[in-house]
Design a protein around this nucleic acid. Structure first.
Length: 267
DNA sequence: CGGGGCTCCTGTGCGC
DNA sequence: TGCGCACAGGAGCCCC
């Protein structure tokens, strides 16, 4: 399930592979995931690839943008030259052919993702509904405190995962940040002390940066363009049985999402 | 405002 | 061995 670090990794790799390439043809195999308007994309150059929250934004030289949310199981594959479709193309939902013969496929098993063509106005509308980037310099501790202040009665984990509050944090990194901050996922945002808020703020950013360094977490079907990430070997609670201090972890449901935490280390 | 439930989808892993 | 079912979940939606 690509979250901020996974999407950031994919964006960095896409940038190297497809920036400057000219799309000659777009093929669409599943209109539930891919906007049929993308069929009209041809003879446009990709001038930049960037990330906003969990969205991948490809900027085209005609002023349009291809915006992709990978959902839980979406991934891209880049091929230097035409070759027979392999296993990874089994769930192909779209394919972009470039003028040099290389191509990019977009695959999705559970089809929770979305890919659409947008103009600047539509892109800005999507972006305006998303909260601050947690790794942006504008995301300061006072800013974080204010976010929690606005959502006093909400569950702290729900706030971390709320894309309108903090953009890009999902179920894995919310759980990891809470563990490292020693805060129980059952707490209300308004109940955190100043020290706990500072710790959670620091740990959230630290864990996201560390995960980016490892090129993301590979669980289930996630893969970046070049293969698996490495952060799954550094997870503290997600899909774990015991914490770093060897306490047994507890699995509960918070806000409809599976949540693993340490009742001893997280208060 | 906040939480709960439902929906989309399909591979995995369980019990019988 | 194989069937059937619960489960996993990001995000948008509705409802209380």
């Amino acid at each position: 399930m690509p979250e901020l670090p996974e999407v950031e990794t994919i964006v960095r790799q896409l940038k190297k592979k497809i920036c400057g390439k000219r799309i000659v043809k777009a093929e669409i195999y599943d209109t539930a995931v891919v906007d049929p308007k993308l069929k009209t994309v041809s003879s446009v150059k990709i001038v930049n690839v960037r990330r906003r929250a969990k969205y991948i934004v490809m900027e085209l030289d005609d002023g349009h943008f291809i915006i992709t949310h990978l959902g839980m199981t979406g991934h891209f594959h880049f091929r230097d030259r035409k070759q027979a479709p392999g296993d990874c193309e089994k769930y192909m939902v779209s394919k972009f052919l470039f003028s040099d013969g290389s191509y990019l496929t977009h695959n999705s098993i559970r089809k929770f993702g979305k890919m659409r063509l947008a103009d600047l106005q539509q892109l800005q509308k999507i972006s305006s509904k998303l909260g601050a980037e947690p790794l942006d310099e504008k995301f300061t501790l006072p800013y974080f405190n204010e976010l929690l202040w606005k959502r006093l009665r909400a569950n702290i984990k729900a706030v971390l995962m709320d894309q309108q509050a903090i953009a890009g944090v999902g179920n894995i990194y919310a759980q990891e940040a809470l563990y490292h901050a020693g805060v129980s996922p059952l707490r209300k945002a308004g109940s955190l002390s100043a020290g706990e808020r500072k710790s959670l703020y620091t740990e959230l950013r630290r864990i996201l940066l560390e995960a980016i360094r490892y090129r993301g977490t590979t669980v289930d079907n996630y893969s970046n363009l070049e293969g698996r990430g490495g952060f799954q070997d550094h997870l503290a609670v997600y899909q774990k049985e015991r914490c770093a201090k060897d306490h047994p972890l507890q699995k509960i449901v918070v806000g409809g999402r599976g949540t693993t935490y340490c009742p001893k280390c997280q208060r």
